[in-house]
Write a protein that binds this DNA or RNA. Structure first.
Lengths: 263, 263
DNA sequence: ACAAAAGTGTTTAGACTACACCCATGC
DNA sequence: GCATGGGTGTAGTCTAAACACTTTTGT
């Protein structure tokens, strides 16, 4: 591309990973996210978002998925680019740094799986310590984006298993949006959207009428990202690092090399 | 930040610039955007989005505003980060390149101002030639984002002057959304939003009732970008390169250095 | 029987659409 | 006067919120 060399501008990819977790067994679940303890200056000892440099032959979303895998051992249920941060002052006492940040949703059971590690810990999303760099602001923005997207998109199932009840799905919405939803109206809305398919099974064992299990309808595109078609949504069979296109669902993703060195 | 060096990954910033322009004097205006002719390989001779490398002490949005200034001679009426493109294959026969792309709105009269230049030309947004790199896809995505944002945000005034009639404002919406709007209902909607302030002046000279002039209400935040507060919206007095925070209005902008080299 | 959650039905308020209609100006 | 767009009024449609009510299980 013959664009000017990036001089001393380093490029990194970080990921904000959300999962639902209930502190007490029967308590309402809330949003949690994993942070990693920094071992170098600046901000040594502080908690920070998982991330690191981009590998030479790796796409941006692939790097984010790798962050996720290395931090939680999981594949993303949903993954979308959040923003590129490049303020000249964002990295004190270190060189200039531009970070492309992704956000992801994973299944709830991820939270306990990795809590044994001492350098990785899950925190409640609305009760974070003071993080390294501008990561507090990043998480705030990721939360804002998640809440917005939850209202007009159909990504909640990414925080659940293959099948789920409408109650479970509603709990995801309630936890993210932090407000109770009418079960009756919620049912009608998701049924009208066509995003779910009823299975034949029900869940017995509760001391009440057994709820039906639903499955996500893959025929429906849940993310309205326009012309973009990002990637490792669900387990994409073997398309390892096929695409780095931005997520076409929300106004944030699109893939294009905009090099222009003339002018 | 002690993150791995970016090896050979170059970083560039490009900008998709939109303005309204009517081919014929009395024809309906349509979206146009300026492109720049490449003078180097790859894609020498092809049209491409204005852009270039990021300067060492320059914020991302400042670089986008500089693109805009150098291409059109104007300051952005609205500027927002679009997406970061980093597919490994996006730059044939050149090194790895990651581009952070912005999109902008400018006043309509910009179109004719620069059409004399031979290396910069304005094109109708829905009738572009085959561009360099993946720039066709980028423009498609920028258009999709603009159209989405136009429906739930109040950015249309960025394509007009300081004062404007409701007809002019409606024409912006009609050109972007490509469908006619009911003048009566349009009026009620914008009046109910509180985004506009009526002035005392009217426009005489038309062969019909003189329409009232309106001004944008700065007290209302028109861009719902959450916790982000980007920047060079209107002429920000002298805040040259103050902020590089992502635009908090739409689900795309947030500023944060996500360096993480441990793990 | 009773509690509790699943699931259905109904009423109402607000938002948006369509379109009829009046107003003010230039010619 | 009449054409043209500015501006107001109003009835019909659609959606979503609120909430009463019925169903089905476990204990």
């Amino acid at each position: 591309m013959a664009a000017g060399k990036s001089e001393d501008i380093a490029l990194a990819v970080s990921t904000v990973i959300f999962a639902l977790h209930a502190e007490a067994p029967q308590a309402r679940p809330s949003l949690h996210l994993p942070l990693v303890r920094r071992i170098r200056e600046p901000f040594a000892g502080r908690w920070a978002l998982p991330g690191g440099p981009l590998l030479p032959q790796e796409g941006l979303s692939a790097a984010a998925a790798r962050n996720l895998q290395q931090t939680t051992g999981l594949r993303p249920g949903y993954l979308e680019q959040l923003y590129a941060f490049g303020d000249p002052d964002r990295s004190p006492s270190a060189g200039r740094m531009v970070s492309v940040v992704y956000w992801a949703l994973v299944h709830a059971d991820a939270v306990t799986d990795t809590s044994s590690d001492d350098n990785v810990r899950w925190f409640a999303a609305d009760d974070l310590p003071s993080l390294a760099f501008d990561h507090n602001l990043i998480v705030e923005y990721a939360l804002w984006r998640l809440r917005n997207k939850m209202e007009y998109s159909r990504i909640a199932h990414a925080m659940l298993g293959e099948t789920f009840t409408l109650s479970e799905l509603r709990q995801v919405y309630e936890a993210v949006l932090r407000k109770p939803l009418d079960p009756a109206n919620f049912r009608r809305q998701v049924e009208a959207s066509g995003a779910l398919v009823a299975t034949d099974s029900v869940v017995t064992g509760g001391r009440h009428r057994p709820p039906r299990l639903y499955r996500y309808n893959d025929a429906v595109d849940m993310t309205d990202n326009g012309p973009l078609t990002d990637i490792p949504q669900h387990p994409p069979p073997h398309a390892a690092d096929s695409a780095d296109l931005p997520d076409p669902t929300d106004p944030t993703a699109l893939n294009d090399p905009t090099d222009r060195s003339n002018l």
